[in-house]
């Protein structure tokens, strides 16, 4: 099974029914699969904080949700994570393409890559880093953990994991 299919299957198995996305080249495949999945309502967002608002609403309406976005969005969403997702204690799996790591061709991506884990650590956000393809095996448990503790949880997925970008 491809990594993209495994991710979508884990979302479905964990009753994630709404996924919002802001695209990244590395995420193109999984976003296509999310869009095609009939068990998931796919709602593209124009900005990641908007997406987190939609996820907060879906959660309060009784549906599990998740966001798929690029790590640059961590710089955009600090206030939303602190004052909405964390303050109201809501679960939010964040599948994040970790640009600016080994294999990165675009120098500017490194500028946010060096801040990504530091910001997540500063926010006390549980953070997992998928580097090898096999790391995807942990996703199911990470999703269970997220909905158990009602916290935003970050899953950073780098270029090595995606076998290039």
């Amino acid at each position: 099974m491809s990594v993209d299919d495994k991710i979508v299957q884990d979302f479905v198995n964990n009753k994630v029914e709404l996924v919002t996305t802001v695209p990244c080249k590395q995420l193109a495949g999984v976003i296509d699969k999310i869009d095609a999945c009939k068990d998931i309502y796919h709602i593209p967002s124009n900005k990641e904080d908007e997406g987190m608002g939609i996820c907060a609403g879906a959660f309060m309406g009784g549906k599990r949700s998740a966001i798929i976005m690029q790590n640059t969005a961590i710089g955009v969403t600090v206030n939303t994570l602190a004052t909405l997702t964390q303050y109201y204690r809501m679960p939010l799996p964040m599948l994040i393409s970790y640009r600016g790591e080994l294999g990165e061709p675009v120098a500017c991506q490194v500028e946010m890559a060096v801040h990504t884990k530091a910001i997540l650590a500063q926010l006390n956000i549980p953070t997992y880093h998928f580097h090898h393809e096999d790391d995807v095996a942990e996703l199911d448990k990470i999703l269970q953990y997220t909905f158990m503790c009602n916290k935003p949880v970050a899953i950073l997925t780098d270029a090595s994991f995606w076998k290039g970008y």
Binding site: E17, L18, Y41, I43, D49, E50, G51, M52, G53, I54, C55, A56, G57, A58, F59, M60, G61, G62, K63, S65, N79, T80, A82, T83, L84, Y87
Partner: peptide
């Protein structure tokens, strides 16, 4: 009533997510 204590701008996004997730009017 859901009161937003922070996060300027997201009232419409939260409301949309709520409305999409269930049947009550929001």
């Amino acid at each position: 009533n859901f009161y937003m204590l922070g996060t300027m701008g997201l009232s419409s996004s939260i409301g949309l997510g709520l409305a999409l997730a269930q049947k009550q009017k929001v």
